[in-house]
Simulated assay, not measured.
Amino acid sequence: MDAPVIATADDAAKLLRPRFDALAGERIVVLHLGADRGLLGTSEYPGSIDQADLPLRAIIGAALERDARGMIVAHNHPSGAARPSEEDVAATALLVRIAKALDIRVYDHLIFAGDSWASFRGLGLL
């Protein structure tokens, strides 16, 4: 079976939504993508009840292990607001800079909250 191709934020959201339903705490999930945006694998990192710091070394390490050419990062806000915090924006900007230096593209960062979700790219933050 061929790996799914993640061409849009909607594609990613459909794939990722079940991983965030009914979670009490925050979680980070990364989709690792090939040059054709085909899914190579996923990585998952736990957060706390109200915070999930991007584990930059682990995310980059997992991307390099899979020879990923791109990634989509996602995390949830159990509080119910699908708006990126200042910390989310700063951490994503740092991840983008590190990944770019290694020829890995961060296509998007999605935030899930309840029934809604937001895309950094859609918000003009990437």
Results as ranks from 00 to 15, higher is better:
Met1Val: 11
Pro4Asn: 10
Pro4Arg: 14
Val5Gln: 12
Val5Cys: 11
Ile6Ala: 02
Thr8Asp: 05
Thr8Phe: 08
Ala9Gly: 15
Ala9Trp: 04
Asp10Arg: 15
Asp10Thr: 15
Asp11Gln: 08
Asp11Asn: 15
Asp11Ala: 09
Ala12Lys: 00
Lys14Val: 07
Leu15Val: 12
Leu16Pro: 03
Arg17Cys: 02
Arg17Gln: 14
Pro18Ile: 04
Pro18Asn: 07
Arg19Ile: 04
Arg19Tyr: 10
Arg19Glu: 12
Asp21Val: 15
Asp21Ser: 14
Arg27Glu: 14
Arg27Met: 13
Arg27Tyr: 06
Arg27Asp: 08
Arg27Ile: 07
Ile28Thr: 10
Ile28Phe: 04
Val29Cys: 07
Val29Met: 02
Val29Lys: 00
Val30Gln: 01
Leu31Cys: 11
Leu31Asp: 02
Leu31Ala: 07
Leu31Ile: 06
His32Trp: 08
Leu33Ala: 07
Leu33Asp: 02
Leu33Trp: 06
Gly34Pro: 07
Ala35Gln: 08
Ala35Asn: 09
Asp36Met: 10
Asp36Gly: 09
Arg37Tyr: 09
Gly38Val: 09
Gly38Ser: 15
Leu40Val: 07
Gly41Lys: 06
Gly41Trp: 12
Gly41Gln: 10
Thr42Pro: 01
Ser43Ile: 03
Ser43Pro: 01
Glu44Cys: 09
Glu44Gly: 12
Glu44Ala: 14
Glu44Asp: 11
Glu44Ser: 14
Tyr45Val: 03
Pro46Trp: 13
Pro46Met: 15
Gly47Phe: 04
Ile49Asp: 13
Ile49Tyr: 11
Gln51Pro: 02
Asp53Lys: 11
Asp53Glu: 13
Pro55Ala: 14
Pro55Leu: 04
Pro55Met: 04
Leu56Cys: 06
Leu56Gln: 10
Leu56Asp: 02
Leu56Ser: 08
Ile59Thr: 06
Gly61Glu: 10
Gly61Phe: 13
Leu64Gln: 13
Leu64Ala: 06
Ala68Thr: 07
Arg69Pro: 01
Arg69Val: 07
Gly70Trp: 00
Met71Pro: 01
Met71Tyr: 05
Met71Cys: 03
Val73Phe: 00
His75Gln: 09
His75Lys: 09
His75Val: 02
Asn76Ser: 13
Asn76Phe: 05
Pro78Phe: 03
Ser79Leu: 11
Gly80Pro: 03
Ala81Met: 11
Arg83Lys: 13
Arg83Ile: 05
Pro84Leu: 03
Ser85Leu: 07
Ser85Ala: 05
Glu86His: 07
Glu86Asp: 10
Glu86Gln: 11
Val89Cys: 01
Ala90Ile: 14
Ala93Arg: 10
Ala93Val: 00
Ala93Asn: 10
Leu94Arg: 14
Leu94Glu: 14
Leu95His: 02
Val96Asp: 07
Val96Tyr: 06
Arg97Tyr: 05
Ala99Glu: 00
Lys100Gly: 05
Lys100Tyr: 08
Ala101Trp: 09
Ala101Lys: 13
Ala101Phe: 10
Leu102Ser: 09
Asp103Trp: 02
Ile104Lys: 00
Ile104Gly: 06
Val106Glu: 00
Tyr107Asn: 09
Asp108Thr: 05
His109Asn: 08
Ile111Cys: 03
Ile111Asn: 01
Ala113Ser: 06
Ser116His: 11
Ser116Val: 05
Trp117Lys: 08
Ala118Gln: 04
Ala118His: 00
Arg121Asp: 12
Arg121Val: 11
Leu126Ile: 14
